[in-house]
Computed example of a mutant assay.
Amino acid sequence: MTQNQRPATRGRGAVTNEILRYAEHRREAIDDGWGADAPSPIATSVDIDHSREIISYNDSPDIPFDRSVNPYRGCEHGCIYCYARPSHAWLGLSPGLDFETRLFQKPDAAAQLERALAAPRYRPATLALGANTDPYQPIERRLTLTRAILRVLADCRHPVVVTTKSALVLRDREILAEMAAEGCAAVMISLTTLDLDLARRLEPRAATPTRRLAVIEALAKAGVPVGVLVAPVIPALTDADLERILDQAATAGAIRACSQLIRLPHEVGELFTQWLATHYPQRAAKVLGLIRQCRGGRLNDPAFVARHRGQGPIADLLRQRFLLAARRAGLATDPDGWRFETDRFRPPRGPQLSLFD
C-alpha cells in the first residue's frame, strides 16, 4: 500500500482524518501489516453551533448571489471533493472524516433569520440556501431546520434558491411550490455523475443519480422551477457523463443548468489525492495531471472566475461541451442565475401589533 493509498471507511468519503492546519500535532497512519482491513464504521455526532448571525454575505464577483444561509456545519453526504471541507479546520477539526462525522447544527436558525429579515435596514435579495453544505443532508430529516427556514422565507415572500443533492427536498415541495407560485423560489439539483458505483464512492451518503433525476421530475411537476448543477466536473473521471446528465435533466423537467470545474482548496487537494489512490489508483495520475493542466500547473487556482472554469485547452473544451449540450437540451445557462423580484417581500411581524391592524 502506497503512502497515499489507504483503506476506505465504509459509507464515508475521506480516507483519513489528518488535521493539516492550525494544529500543534499531526497524526500519520502507517501500514504495519496488521491494519489492511477497512476501518470500523464511524458514528455521526451532532453538536450545537453557537453562531450569532445566520445570514452570510459575500462580495465575490463570480457568484450570482450576495447572501446565503447554512443551518449546518459539516456534511454527512461525505462528498470527497467538497470545497467546504477546509472550514472544519477553523474549528480545530479535520476537513477529512471529521467533516463528515462531527456535525454542527444551528437550532435557532429560523428565529435568527426572522430577526435578521425584520431589521429596519434589511433589503431583500435572492438568498442561497445550501451554498456551503447541503441543507437536506441526513440529519435534516430529524432536526427539520431547513423546513423551518423555508417557512420563514415563505411567510415573508423572500426569494430563495435551494441547492441540494438529496431527495429529502421533496418533503418540502408544498412550501417550495407555494413560494414558486409567488415567484420567489427555485431548486438546483447537484448531479455529478450517472455512474452508480462512482457516485457511491464519490458522494457516499447522497441520493443516487437516478433518484436525483426523479427529484427534478417531481419538483417540476409540482410547479417548482428546477435546474441541474453539473458540479464538479472532474476530467477523466466524471466528464464522460456531461452531455447525458444535461439531456436527462432536461427530459425530467429542468430548465436551467450550471457547471463548475473541480476545485481543490487547501486540504481538499490532499484528501482528493488520497481518495484517488485508494479507489482509482490506475487512473489517479491522469486525473491529477488533467486538473493541473486546468489550474496552471497546480491542483487549485483561487482566482475569481478561473476557480470555477479553469484555464487552458482542457478547461475550454469542457466549457464548450457544456454550453453546446445545454443549448441542445434547451437549458438556460446565463451566469446571473435565477432572477426574482423582491417587491412582494413583507418583513416578519414582531410581537408588537401594527397601528392599522
Results as ranks from 00 to 15, higher is better:
2 T>S: 14
3 Q>N: 12
4 N>T: 05
5 Q>G: 04
6 R>Y: 03
11 G>V: 07
16 T>H: 15
19 I>H: 14
21 R>N: 01
27 R>N: 11
27 R>A: 12
30 I>H: 08
33 G>V: 03
33 G>A: 02
33 G>R: 01
42 I>Q: 04
42 I>P: 04
56 S>C: 06
68 S>R: 07
70 N>E: 00
70 N>C: 08
81 Y>T: 09
84 A>F: 11
86 P>N: 03
91 L>M: 09
93 L>T: 09
93 L>P: 09
96 G>Y: 04
97 L>N: 04
98 D>F: 11
114 E>N: 06
117 L>K: 05
118 A>R: 00
120 P>A: 00
125 A>L: 10
127 L>W: 03
130 G>K: 12
131 A>F: 03
133 T>R: 07
140 E>Y: 01
142 R>M: 09
146 T>M: 08
147 R>P: 01
157 R>P: 07
157 R>I: 09
158 H>S: 03
159 P>G: 00
163 T>M: 03
164 T>I: 07
168 L>I: 00
180 A>N: 00
181 A>Y: 05
188 M>H: 13
189 I>V: 12
191 L>M: 06
195 D>G: 08
208 T>M: 12
209 P>Y: 07
216 I>F: 00
219 L>C: 09
222 A>M: 00
230 V>F: 14
234 I>H: 12
235 P>S: 12
235 P>D: 14
239 D>W: 08
241 D>Y: 01
244 R>E: 10
247 D>E: 15
249 A>R: 01
250 A>V: 10
253 G>M: 03
254 A>G: 05
256 R>S: 01
268 V>W: 11
273 T>M: 04
279 H>C: 06
282 Q>G: 13
286 K>A: 15
301 D>H: 04
306 A>L: 00
306 A>I: 04
308 H>F: 11
311 Q>N: 09
314 I>G: 00
317 L>W: 05
325 A>G: 02
326 A>D: 00
328 R>M: 10
352 Q>N: 10
